[in-house]
C-alpha cells in the first residue's frame, strides 16, 4: 500500500489520517503546533485583559460602548456552523467519498468568508464611528492584535483549505493527501476554539463591564 496508490472503498483504512509514517509524524507535529498556539493566544488574551479599557482620555470609546450583541452572535453562529461542516467533510473522508468531502469543505470555506466579511465590517465600523483604531489607545492596540490575529488565522485557514481542494480536485483521495485534509480540519476547529474564548472574554465580558 503506497501512499499515492489509487485506493478503493474496500482498501480504505479506518484511520487514513494516520496510516503512513509521514502521516503519523504530521499528526504529532501538528498537535505540538496547536499546543504552542494555545500559549501564543494566551499571551494575547493576557495582554488584552491587562490593557482592557486603558485609554488616554475619557472621550475614547470603552469596550461597553463598542460591542453589539447581534453582530457577535451572528459571527459566533457562522464560525460554529463552519466547524460542524468541516466535521461532515472528515466524515466523508473516512468513508472514502471524495466529492462529498469537497462539497462540505466548500461550504466550510464559504462560511469562513462570511465570518471574515463580518469582521471587516465590524473593524471598519469601530474605526469610522468611534475612532477606535490600532494606535488610538493601549486598549485599541490590544483589541486589534488579539481579534486581528484570530482573523489572520481564519484567512490563512481559508487559503490552506482552498489550496488543498484545488490541488487535489482531480487526484481524488489517497493516503498521501488524506492526512493533509485531516490536519487542515484540525486547524479549522482550533480557530473555533480560540473564537469561543474571544466571544466570551472580549465581547461578552466587555459588555458586562
Amino acid at each position: 500500500m503506497q501512499a499515492e496508490e489509487k485506493m478503493t472503498l474496500e482498501q480504505w483504512p479506518a484511520a487514513p489520517e494516520r496510516q503512513t509514517l509521514e502521516a503519523k509524524n504530521k499528526f504529532l507535529g501538528f498537535w505540538f503546533f496547536l499546543g504552542g498556539e494555545t500559549v501564543l493566544f494566551a499571551s494575547l488574551f493576557a495582554t488584552y485583559l491587562a490593557l482592557k479599557d486603558k485609554v488616554p482620555s475619557p472621550d475614547h470609546a470603552l469596550a461597553k460602548d463598542l460591542f453589539e450583541i447581534p453582530l457577535v452572535f451572528l459571527m459566533t453562529m457562522i464560525l460554529l456552523t463552519s466547524s460542524l461542516t468541516s466535521v461532515y467533510a472528515m466524515y466523508h473522508m473516512k468513508n472514502f467519498d471524495f466529492k462529498k468531502m469537497q462539497l462540505w469543505l466548500g461550504v466550510t470555506v464559504l462560511l469562513g468568508f462570511a465570518f471574515l466579511g463580518c469582521e471587516i465590517y465590524e473593524f471598519n465600523h469601530y474605526v469610522h464611528e468611534y475612532g477606535h483604531t490600532f494606535t488610538s489607545s493601549a486598549f485599541g492596540s490590544a483589541f486589534y492584535t488579539l481579534v486581528g490575529f484570530h482573523g489572520a488565522h481564519v484567512t490563512f485557514g481559508l487559503g490552506w483549505i482552498l489550496a488543498l481542494m484545488i490541488r487535489n480536485a482531480k487526484r481524488g483521495l489517497d493516503l498521501y493527501n488524506a492526512p493533509k485534509f485531516y490536519v487542515a480540519s484540525l486547524y479549522w476547529h482550533f480557530i473555533d476554539v480560540v473564537w469561543v474564548f474571544i466571544f466570551s472574554v472580549v465581547y461578552l465580558m466587555g459588555m458586562v463591564g
Binding site: 498537535w31 505540538f32 496547536l34 499546543g35 504552542g36 498556539e37 494555545t38 500559549v39 493566544f41 494566551a42 499571551s43 488574551f45 493576557a46 495582554t47 485583559l49 491587562a50
Partner: peptide, 17 residues
C-alpha cells in the same frame, strides 16, 4: 501537548493580570 499548553496559558494570564 494541549494540557501543557493550557497550563502555561493559565500561568501566563495570571502573571500578566
Amino acid at each position: 501537548f494541549m494540557f501543557s499548553g493550557v497550563f502555561f496559558a493559565i500561568v501566563m494570564i495570571i502573571a500578566y493580570l
